[in-house]
Design a protein around this nucleic acid. Structure first.
Lengths: 255, 255
DNA sequence: CATTAATAACTGACTGGTCAGTTATTAGAA
DNA sequence: TTCTAATAACTGACCAGTCAGTTATTAATG
């Protein structure tokens, strides 16, 4: 094995004394267009445009799609570039390395959603079971209907190869998500709306099926006739949770 | 040619004179001792042994470990070989390709367990909730305490790259597992021990947390202080299921 | 029992292809 | 014209897979 460090090497290396770029294929006929610039006047097929602002998000979208399908290691940057309608070199104008691109994809996809969910949860007036339902339905939409649902699969697969990304994800996504649901559970228990369950495992039991949606969709669904109807699945999950979190009905009168 | 041998190069000697011996300055370990045959009399550290029968399972174990840590694409066969205490060439005496090795790993790890679970479930006398608990506890052990728990992560990650393996896994593992739990659910509903839930989604809700155990353990646990106590987690899952599958308590007296 | 011959298991240097990352050059924009 | 986004050809590293050669083991022979 080798390395393990982050990032690649220093950026600008002035190494490499080229040979003689022109000499190589001496007699080779020059490709196609002989006239340097004059001949392309009529039908102006522009080869490219400057789009400095639009590129980064386009690249991130393309990269998410390719990573989602192939996984990090098997994804080719040529494919990402092609999908983003640019050349591979252009990728490197915006991202330092494949790894940096991967991290950016994860961050860009996840962070806004987490923050939004936290905000939505913090000032919910009604019953806690309804709050839980709202949050889960929203999460189900994001995972089930956007490419973001592929991120968990990616992270799972690559956690072993990118320890620092794994830690980032643990802290910024899993940790915060965990806190979000822990807070909801605690609220319900404090209000007497939920029975006093063990919080940590219960949160995991709440999250696991949500994870399942993304995993199924992005790993197996295309190979299997079985469709997963995310809203219905989430509804069933919510229903089961309502029942299993309900305080003991007959035996325990409220104090 | 080949003048280096000072001792008797008689027959056994280090022939090894490849074409350009000096070209690669890399870590070419020098051929160690001088007398090839004489020196190995006292403390005979045989360089290797023939172990035709033991190899395949050893290779499979090593491969599972390496694949589990790195994923298929990032795993190096040199690492697998090193872990199995053999050379890379030997791998190819037993498996045709990296892909064939991967498939063999999955098959070897999964198939026996599925069959065993089916057998155990088919003739269970007691209440269906107990049957469900037994099966889940057993599954929790396998996933939580053996390297087999890494397989789901692997399959998830590589389903996109190995369509035929994905289909194999869908059919032989997911399909059969699904049937197993569907049968249990149906049994409970038919006996009036469970309320009449929608089966398909409910089975997914039962399986998802079990999957979660393996995913957590093999992707994140080492990066996070958070231990997952599988038996406790499974117990909590079972408890929640008992509650959420119970028939309506007040309204429905048994006939 | 000691040699020798035959066979099969095993090794590791090597090859060939792939792909991340680099750079000289081109062409759009100002 | 100058500046720079973008390109496309290029390079080097890495690694799956191969194969000529080595070594353990077994069988045959003296």
């Amino acid at each position: 094995m080798q390395e393990s460090g982050e990032v690649g090497r220093a950026a600008r290396g002035a190494r490499r004394g080229r040979k003689n770029p022109a000499a190589q294929k001496s007699g080779a006929r020059l490709p196609a267009a002989q006239t340097p610039s004059a001949a392309r006047s009529a039908a102006t097929p522009r080869r490219w445009r400057r789009r400095k602002e639009a590129r980064p998000t386009e690249i991130l979208e393309a990269a998410l799609a390719v990573f989602a399908e192939r996984g990090f290691a098997a994804a080719r940057l040529d494919d990402v570039a092609a999908r983003a309608r640019i050349s591979k070199g252009t990728l490197y104008l915006y991202f330092d390395s494949k790894e940096a691109l991967f991290k950016a994809v994860v961050r860009a996809a996840i962070v806004p959603n987490i923050a939004q969910a936290e905000a939505a949860a913090s000032d919910f007036p009604g019953p806690t079971a309804d709050l839980l339902a709202v949050v889960l339905r929203r999460l189900g939409q994001v995972i089930g209907e956007t490419p973001i649902g592929a991120i968990p699969k990616l992270m799972l697969a690559e956690a072993g190869n990118f320890p620092d990304l794994a830690r980032f994800y643990l802290k910024e996504v899993i940790g915060r998500g965990f806190k979000l649901f822990s807070g909801i559970l605690a609220r319900g228990i404090a209000r007497g709306e939920f029975r006093p369950v063990e919080v940590k495992d219960t949160v995991r039991l709440i999250i696991a099926p949500m994870l399942f949606i993304g995993l199924w969709r992005h790993a197996f669904e295309r190979h299997s006739g079985e469709r997963l109807d995310a809203p219905r699945f989430v509804a069933q999950h919510i229903d089961m949770l309502r029942r299993s979190l309900a305080p003991a009905p007959s035996a325990e009168p409220r104090p």
